[in-house]
Write a protein that binds this DNA or RNA. Structure first.
Lengths: 194, 194, 194, 194
DNA sequence: TATGAATGAGGTTTCATTCAT
DNA sequence: GATGAATGAAACCTCATTCAT
């Protein structure tokens, strides 16, 4: 299994840095290789092609994040608390890794439709996690009966994504994580909630 | 003024179709020209370069949309109604022009950072329109006192953008506009509003 | 006859200015037309194509110069005096028309082989004039018996051309005409002449 | 160091042939590559861009020539002998490499001003070599006291250049090297020297 | 495993020339 | 005669991927 060899992660981390520093279209395979300290050809011993690096990058980083978040919210009783924790985790993940934030919010979106579809597959798990929280909320009476889950999920994900992208575009110069509570409340109660 | 000549719009519309059908990176200038029924060189009598076509495309389509929406919401008294109309307009615009939907939600996002910055300039007006609605809502007591305008704006825009992108990625096969009322309500009252 | 119409010369003069100011490859037909104050298409009523402008330019300017020089040296008795006058005329012509100097010495040489061959045809008359002086010198005993005319002609033309080109490349900032006497003497007597 | 690899010279030699046979503007990179027996992209492993090939070509060929000539004339005592050898070498170099003759005398002159300036830098060394001979001649009394070095240098270079260009334009069909002695004498003593 | 030299397809833009008005 | 909008051919360079060592 290639994923267990050190160079696999070495190359993925190099890709994050190379893309964050040079931009998606300027992060040539040779640059990633140089950043990883391996030869160009070595890349192809661990990844099928360039796209495969990017998908793997997303899978590794996002997969870990989803698993951790899924686990951590289990200790919370209410859906509101779970949502709050999810938002907090999401913000913290990207605040702690500025390079990763640039890559996932800005650079990777310049990829073609095909790659983005594969990225969406990875995201599906995250969306399922959100759905789970929402269902919990409906079941225990926290959320409106007959809540449109799909809509609510898109509202959560779209809001967080937009917030993070704006924050990255503003050079990450304000404290994103500090807004976690506010946005959670706004998602729960809306503009005219209370 | 080039913008008043018929070929200017002819080329922009051809670009929308060419990009929607071939994808951003496969929409070569020669394809746009062929679609517009002009010679390759003719493009350059109306646009500085390829990027200029894309920026102009966005300005023309989005600019018109923002102006129309801004005008139409003026007849509404409550912020809630205004918001509902904005959402409705946004969904209708893209539902009525499937090619444009693909181009703005998927293809144009593959452009480089420079182009995206220029696109953001155009979007800024739309965001200001949203802010206006929110301020109205706060002033007339519809929305919470001390509403975080920036956050609320990001919630609205992020939610709509996510909804539309998902709809486009699902080949626009369900009725997006039908969700306008539901999403408006959810934005106003949240998941646990009422 | 097109050559008698005012626009013919108007376009040629515009070409000299356009080429001198923009360089050979940046002097597009449209720039020449603008400089001449006519439409692009009008150029083609007076010239077969762009190359024809340049050949005509050379013919007009050089033709006049050769005729004038041929006439003026007839009053001189000795070949040495004739040569001195030819050199003086050549230098004066270009000193008096800095644009023309740039065009003939630098820019027109960037043209392709075909055009340069046609330019050489025009120059042939000038070279014949030089030959005439040389023959006169041999006949009246001023120059060595058995002087290699072809060689001598190439020495004269090559020397003048090199001097002028260097002068133009140095932005014409020194007095070229002041060297006429010195170079004439050097051509006549060499480095170790007297 | 790329210059030591065989393909560096292989490409330069291919460029000489391609330009000589097709003309400056018709010697596309793909033609040079084909002539060199490498892929188009390989060119760019050894040269920054097309212009870089041409500059390197001139530097390699002319640089070698100047160095060799500088060395060979050192064994000569008189300036006259040195000049004779320089002329002989110059003629022989181009007589022995007909392609190179066409390239340096005709084709490379069609390059833009920027490239020509870089070519001039290389030529500067050759002109310095000529100056050295002239100074030697003045110092040892062979040449006139107070000889205008700059003028004399322009006379030598201009004469040789004109002779070679004419010879190339006449398809190199006569024996250029045979004129070396004659032209040397004429430079030394002029038309009316002896 | 690891290397890195070599490959070669593919696209934006310019500009001389035409021709309907 | 004069216009100027429209034409369309043509080329440099990049970079993901391969494969002999």
């Amino acid at each position: 299994m290639k994923k267990n060899k050190p160079k696999y992660h070495q190359i993925i981390d190099a890709a994050v840095v190379a893309i964050a520093e040079n931009g998606y279209h300027q992060a040539q395979v040779s640059k990633i290789a140089r950043q990883a300290g391996v030869a160009d050809g070595t890349i192809y011993l661990y990844f099928k092609n360039k796209e495969d690096i990017l998908i793997s990058l997303f899978q590794e980083k996002m997969g870990t994040f989803v698993a951790k978040t899924a686990e951590s919210i289990q200790v919370k009783q209410t859906a509101a608390e779970q949502l709050q924790l999810l938002v907090q985790n999401h913000f913290t993940l990207l605040t702690d890794d500025p390079h990763l934030a640039v890559v996932t919010q800005l650079e990777l979106r310049q990829s073609n439709k095909e790659l983005r579809l594969k990225i969406n597959e990875v995201l599906k798990e995250y969306l399922l996690l959100i759905d789970q929280i929402l269902k919990t909320g409906v079941e225990n009476g926290e959320f409106n009966d007959g809540l449109n889950i799909r809509l609510a999920r898109q509202m959560i994900f779209g809001t967080l994504d937009e917030m993070i992208t704006t924050w990255v575009m503003n050079d990450q110069k304000y404290d994103l994580a500090a807004s976690a509570d506010d946005v959670t409340k706004m998602l729960l109660h809306g503009f005219s909630g209370k």
